[in-house]
Structure formats: structure tokens, C-alpha cells
Computed example of a mutant assay.
Amino acid sequence: MILGHIGARKGSKGVPGKNFRPLCGKPLIDWSLDQLLSNPRVGAVVVSTDDPQIYDHAVARGALPIGLRPAELATDAAPKWGVWQHALAAGEAAAGQPVTAFLDLDCTSPLRLDSDIDAALDLFEAERPDMVMSVCEARKNPYFNLVELNDQGGLKVSKELPGGVWSRQAAPKVWEHAASTYVVDPEYLRRAKTIYEGRVIPFEMPPERCTDIDTPFDFRLVDWMMGERLKGEHHG
């Protein structure tokens, strides 16, 4: 069984209450929740939250009742990995059957398409890695135009190669970790302490579908982008 998961903390320093704030007419979490509940490959869905309003809403929509997230997993500093481990164990117990893949959709990245989820699941099934992680090509490259201070307080390229890199095309390809879509092997999730211990492979998405909401500006931007997409679908 594929277990779909969304993590949605109550607090947010950047955008208070953002996970339940309306975006294009429905709570932000529902853009991801709808995708999990409507995907025929997803056997069950859990929402890990410390917010009773979000929890009751999710369970009413069809998520498994796993209870509120433990307090130690509800702080700013709580790592995503521990939240996932708890959600996997609670979801497996509530569903009463073993999980074959743990599919996490990030609540604050609602612009992914249904086809992105299926493509990530297909990649996981084809490659059998420890984890598939969404990425997008980075706008800046540490071999070319990301800089940091050297010991003398002057600038140097962050990642230096012999002879230097003088064009973007010549630089090794790097991606941004796009907090959007993850597929994790349950055995790896139970065993590992952090994300990158095992074989984590990239699932590349276009940058315009990876915009993550961290600030009020991001919220306005994603609301506008989603509105443009919905207008296109309406006219299409």
C-alpha cells in the first residue's frame, strides 16, 4: 500500500496560519490533500499536524485518524525525518496493512500537477532507490555565480574547480532541493537517521511548479500563479 502524507504544522513564522489559509478559494492544504485522495494508486492518507482544526478537517475529508502530532515533533526545530517516521508508524497501524511506499506532498508547494506525483511514483518503482526527491534546476550555480568570503574577507567562487568555470554551460549541473514531492522506501525511513544517508535520487520538476510558500510575498505569487492556471483550464 502506498501511504500518502502531508505535514502541516499549526505555527508558521513567515505566514501565520498559512497551511489553512485560503488560496484560490480553498484551504492551502486541500490543494495537496485533494491530489492524494483522488490518486487511485494511494491506498491511504495521513495528515500529521498539531492543529486540531486541520486534523479534524483532514479526517472529515478521508484521512486516517492518527491523532495529533506529538509535542516534540511540533516545534520549529523538529526535523521532517522524525515527523515522517512517526506518520509512517501511525499510518501503518491505523491502516492495518504494510506500507510499500511513503509519498509525502509538501503542503506549502501546491503547484505540482497530478502527473508529477505519478511520475515520481513511476521513478521510484523503476529505480527502487531509498528515496526519490523533487528538485529543480538551480537558478544560481556554486561553480560559477555563487560566491562566499575567503580568509582575507574577499570574494571567491563557492565551489572552485581547477582552471575555473567561466560560463554557466561549463559548470556541473546542480539542482535546488524543491520541497514538493518525495517518495520514500519505508524500510529506509525506519532505519536511517537523516534524508541523505542512502541512495536519494532526483526527480526533476520545472521551477514554475516548485514555488514554495515561505513569506507573504510567496503566498501572493502562488495564489496568482494558481489563478492563471485555473483560468487557462477554464478557457481550455
Rank of each mutant, 00 (worst) to 15 (best):
I2T: 08
L3M: 08
G4Y: 12
H5K: 10
R9S: 05
K10E: 07
G11Y: 14
G14C: 06
V15Q: 13
V15A: 09
P16D: 09
K18S: 03
P22Y: 11
L23H: 12
K26Q: 07
P27N: 09
W31R: 07
L37N: 04
V45R: 00
S48H: 09
T49H: 05
P52E: 10
H57I: 02
H57W: 07
I66L: 06
R69C: 06
R69F: 05
T75E: 05
D76E: 09
A77D: 11
A78L: 06
A78P: 00
A78Q: 01
P79D: 07
K80R: 11
G82V: 06
G82N: 15
V83E: 02
W84V: 10
W84K: 04
Q85I: 01
A87Q: 01
A90K: 10
G96N: 04
A101V: 03
A101I: 02
D104G: 11
L105K: 02
C107D: 00
D116I: 00
A119G: 10
A119V: 04
L123G: 05
E125G: 07
A126P: 06
A126W: 02
E127P: 05
P129Y: 00
M133Q: 13
V135W: 03
A138D: 13
R139G: 15
K140T: 15
N145C: 03
V147N: 12
V147W: 13
E148Q: 14
Q152Y: 07
G153Y: 02
G153Q: 04
G154W: 10
S158M: 15
K159L: 15
L161N: 10
G163R: 06
G164V: 14
S167H: 11
Q169N: 10
A171M: 12
A171Y: 01
H177P: 15
A179C: 15
A179N: 15
Y182W: 14
Y182S: 10
V184T: 14
V184D: 06
D185V: 03
P186I: 03
E187V: 04
L189D: 00
I195L: 12
I195M: 11
I195D: 08
Y196R: 15
Y196A: 13
E197L: 09
I201G: 06
F203M: 00
E204T: 07
P207W: 07
R209T: 09
R209Y: 07
D214Y: 13
F219M: 03
V222Y: 00
V222E: 02
D223N: 11
D223F: 02
M225H: 11
E228D: 08
K231G: 11
E233N: 14
